[in-house]
Design a protein around this nucleic acid. Sequence first.
DNA 1: AAATATTATTCTGTATTACAGAATAGAAAT
DNA 2: ATTTCTATTCTGTAATACAGAATAATATTT
Lengths: 254, 254
Amino acid sequence: MSTTKSIQSVERAFSILELFQQTGCAEHSLKEIAQALELNKSTAFGLVNTLTELGYLQQNRENQKYALGLRLLSFSNTVKVQNIIIRTVHPYLEQINRKYGETVHCAVRQGDGVIYIDKVEATGSIHISTQIGTLNDLHCTGVGKCILAYMPPEDQERVLNGPLKTMTIHTVTNAEQLRREIETVRRQGYATDSEEIAIGLSCLAVPVFSGPDTVACAISVSGMTVRIQNARDNGLLEDLQRLAREISRQIFGS
Amino acid sequence: MSTTKSIQSVERAFSILELFQQTGCAEHSLKEIAQALELNKSTAFGLVNTLTELGYLQQNRENQKYALGLRLLSFSNTVKVQNIIIRTVHPYLEQINRKYGETVHCAVRQGDGVIYIDKVEATGSIHISTQIGTLNDLHCTGVGKCILAYMPPEDQERVLNGPLKTMTIHTVTNAEQLRREIETVRRQGYATDSEEIAIGLSCLAVPVFSGPDTVACAISVSGMTVRIQNARDNGLLEDLQRLAREISRQIFGS
DNA sequence: AAATATTATTCTGTATTACAGAATAGAAAT
DNA sequence: ATTTCTATTCTGTAATACAGAATAATATTT
């Protein structure tokens, strides 16, 4: 929307921080940072130095490399406290997790993707490595389909006609097929992900409405395909739908 | 240390984000932001706009006000995954929490303060509202005293002679008295906080060493004074000290 | 142990950019 | 309908962030 020019040094500062997420590597030398972002070494130094002084990066005395600073932790704390959706939804996620023992997520729309904003992980040994706060695709996740199904038509079309990344052989990458599936989601009031993001992994998701045809967030339960099927046999869908109505009422009072 | 000049717009951008933590208010108008940081409105707009486009702020369509963006959540996730101390210490915190039912913290030094980097909260109803990632004082917390006790002498003196904020009537605000207490901490191998930060609240903390006389982090258990006393009667101190040695060995191999 | 390579950090002039102030648009209140 | 807010956009300029060169500090090789 806003056509105003972004402030270069701020963009660059954050892209340095984001670099640590992308690479998964905990430490980077100044040189690596400069190369990865195609910055002049001294330019990179200025940014890195500023971030270090602010506590958002820290330098390892041993090898001089930089790592993410612990002060970044403060933000997630504040975000969680201040975000009414996270505050309200969390106990419900725990409730579902207690009953079915699977991983439960809450996600919201961010641009043309979803961000998982909260989770309660399965007690079992199998890990689903979702990253809270990172952007995920709409077309191959249960929560994504819930959100996509109620997006404004023009946004929806842009996503449908945009690139639909193939994650597994079950990923729906055809616009027409996805359009039909989204209609089904609207009709049924829930979305599924049947091994579309990873083989063996399925998920069941419901939208939480803030008003007619407007989705505030989506809640999903994911786990091994057979276990999700079991959970559905034991009333998971009904529980999720009841929950979604309850949350809706609690936050948006309708 | 570094005398290099920080990049102004990066500093300002972060001070905008930090504003939301200080005030505790979830939403701020552009005007409020500009006033709070004494920035020209259009300067503030440029920064706010950049942060919004990056997803670190979000604008409420209704009232045009700004709030922290959910993308900030992604950092704490990465920090936790990448930080070896948090990864290693967390299960031990849970272990202590299970045994004694009190709130357990892990903190590290940051400049002349401490940052709580992880916690497991008491199961009971009483909340100790520690903010993960935020800077706290050294002189009035158990973890702080553990860290202060093993700081390089010049740093220690700077803190001792600096302002020592009064939190309760029990807070040690006299440099000489604090110096003596710190000696005791070194001799005994643990630190206490007896209602020095809040009336009714006590804490027991131990340092985790990364080498001789070098503290990597500190671990504390806090709760209502009588309950902490009970826990000590049941072996809390010994458990903490064993834990600290164990963690030390596991991370720093000695 | 000396020499070389590599990397972080400082210095400096300048082109660029972020800034402040004024102007505009848009909403809310009167 | 008028006024009073506040958020945005526009624009010239002063200030800043930038790039490149120089230096310091470390590691590596000979």
